Each structure stands twice: as structure tokens, then as C-alpha cells.
Simulated scan of single mutants.
Amino acid sequence: MTTMKPISPNDHYFDHYLFDNGSDLGAQQLNSLSALFDGTTRSVLSTLPLPASPNSLEIGAGNGSVARMIAEQTGGQVVAIDLDTTHLPRTPGVEPHRHDIREGVPAGPFDLIHARLVLTHLPARREIFAQLIDELAPGGWLVLADVGLADELLVAPEESDHDVWRKYNDAAYRQVGPAAGHDYLWAEQTEAAMFGAGLSEVSAEHLVPLARGGGPWAVYQSNLSKQAEAPLLATGLSMTDMDRYRAMLTDPEFRARFFSLTYTAGRKPSA
């Protein structure tokens, strides 16, 4: 790993994935992320005019699906970093590293930097954002995908589920997340931040997926509740409400929008 630029530590940092990547459930979550997001990620990245054999950085690489995608599509080299590389294999064109982005951004220059579901969850997001731009090559692209809250229960299997939904979301996204420094407004602020940093050709795509009971979004959310069970219960959420929340997500009648997802891309002006 090349020289890092140090950034200030944050004592309230909470693992941005909210789960243990080394566990079986963590592996399921990483695979779920790939299944849910990789199609859109591929579509966004495939539109970017990159040089031949670009040098790329993938942050929060997870199981490596996006890093492999970039390497295969571009024929270039990808530095893939994550807090836990248990499920991040070395493959052609992909160089995995265990690294905490809070400790600094790997030195570039990079023709492409991509981070998915990372900056929303990091208190030092704006400082890291500035460092990412510093490490872009002239003409290089920064692509960020982050989540916001949709928080819409459209069809509840039981009338009382509206109260359970409210209690769970209050615990998860108004207590646990903010206490850890998560900012669910960041995703929709990224476009303005890129313009403000002098990037050009800035574009943003905003998606609000619809989840059905037993479907992939509901399964992902249920698994996430299991990984974050201890801090959620510490807020005062009851195990009875937690169990009902998970049961609700398996009901075929259930329909909801959990998150919005915003992909934002910007290009560093050529020197």
C-alpha cells in the first residue's frame, strides 16, 4: 500500500457496514449488496470515458464484485480496500488491501475512484471526500453511491405493524445511525459537493427501490437487523417488536421503501 495521508480519528465511528464481514451472515450481506446494486453500478460505470488500462481505486470493496467488474471492463488495475478482506480474493487486475479509509486515502493518481455505501456512514466524510478528489488524476472520475432514507411502509400485513415499523426505524436511523455519525442527507448533497469542489460533467441518478415481503431488499434488511441487534435493543426497542419486524418482512403482502440510492459522478478537469 502506498503512502497514506492521515485524517483525524473519530471515537464514535461505527463500522460502516453495520455487520461482521467475517461471519456467515456478513457474507450473505455482501452477496446481497452485489445482487441488489451491481446492475446499477455496472450501468453507471460503463458510461464513463476512461483511458486505456486505467488505474482505479475501489473503497469498501466487500466481496470484490465491483473491483472485478472494473478490472474486467477496463483492462486496468484496481486497488481494492476494505476494513475486512475475508471475502475479497486476489483476482486478475485486482489488488486487495485491508485498510481503514479513515487512516487516509491511498496515494494516486487514480483515473477512477468508486465508493458505494461508504461516505454516508463516516463522520469525516467531507474530509475524506476532499482527499479523494486530491488523488484523482487530471480527467479522472469520482463515483459515489450512497443511501438516504425513504421510510415508507406502503402495505402492512397488520395494522399494528405501522407502529412496529416506526419504532424500528426510529431506533435504527434516528438513534443508532446518527450516534455513530451517519448522515442520511449526504447522498443528495453529493452533487453540490462535487460542483463545489470544481469537478465537471457532474451527474446524479436517484433511485427508490420498492421492497416486497420475502424479496431481496426485505431479506437484506432483516439480516441487517440481526447484525445490529445489540445496539438496536440498547435503544429500548423490545425483542417482541424486533421479532415482529422480521416476521413482517417475510410476509408476501408487505410492501415498503426502505432506502433511496443516489449515484453521483464527477470528473476532475484536465490539467
Rank of each mutant, 00 (worst) to 15 (best):
T262D: 14
S160H: 10
F258Y: 11
E191C: 08
V208G: 15
I113T: 00
D100T: 09
A150T: 15
Q227V: 10
D183F: 06
N21I: 05
S23W: 05
E95R: 15
H16A: 09
V44L: 10
Y17T: 12
V79N: 09
R166Q: 07
R125C: 13
N55W: 13
T85V: 15
E103I: 03
D146I: 02
F14N: 09
V202G: 01
I101M: 03
V94N: 01
D134T: 04
D243Q: 10
P269T: 07
E205A: 10
G215M: 14
I7K: 09
D100Q: 13
G196V: 12
A218V: 10
G93H: 06
I133F: 01
A27I: 08
Q221R: 04
Y13T: 13
G214P: 08
Y220R: 07
L119Y: 04
W141V: 06
A171F: 00
V176Y: 01
S238P: 12
A230W: 02
L233S: 14
D111M: 14
V208E: 12
G108W: 01
Q77D: 15
W217Q: 02
P9K: 12
V78P: 01
L237T: 15
H182R: 13
T250W: 06
D82W: 07
A230R: 05
R125P: 01
L237Q: 08
G26K: 11
S270H: 06
I133P: 00
I113C: 01
N63F: 08
A172M: 09
L122P: 13
L153W: 04
L57K: 01
A124Q: 05
F19N: 02
I59T: 03
A218P: 02
P51R: 15
P231W: 02
L30P: 01
E201F: 11
G196W: 08
R212N: 09
D82Q: 05
V176D: 00
G148L: 05
H87S: 13
R98F: 12
E201Q: 06
S8W: 05
G177C: 11
E103R: 15
L210Y: 03
Q221F: 05
L153F: 05
Y17F: 12
A124T: 12
L199S: 00
L122R: 07
P138R: 13
K167N: 07
V143D: 00
A234E: 12
H16D: 14
G76W: 08
G26I: 15
M4E: 07
A204T: 12
G148N: 02
P178L: 10
G215A: 10
E72C: 10
L233T: 15
T250E: 12
T262G: 02
T240P: 10
A187M: 11
H99V: 15
D241G: 13
D15G: 14
R98H: 09
D100W: 14
L50P: 07
T85H: 02
Q189F: 07
V79F: 12
Y168L: 03
A124I: 03
E135T: 08
R244S: 10
D84C: 08
A218M: 14
V202Q: 01
T91Y: 04
R90F: 08
V176S: 00
D251P: 12
R42G: 10
A61H: 11
V105H: 00
L224R: 09
H162P: 07
A27S: 04
P252G: 08
L45R: 00
G148C: 05
A211F: 04
Q73I: 14
P51W: 07
A271R: 09
H206I: 02
L83M: 09
N55P: 15
A171M: 00
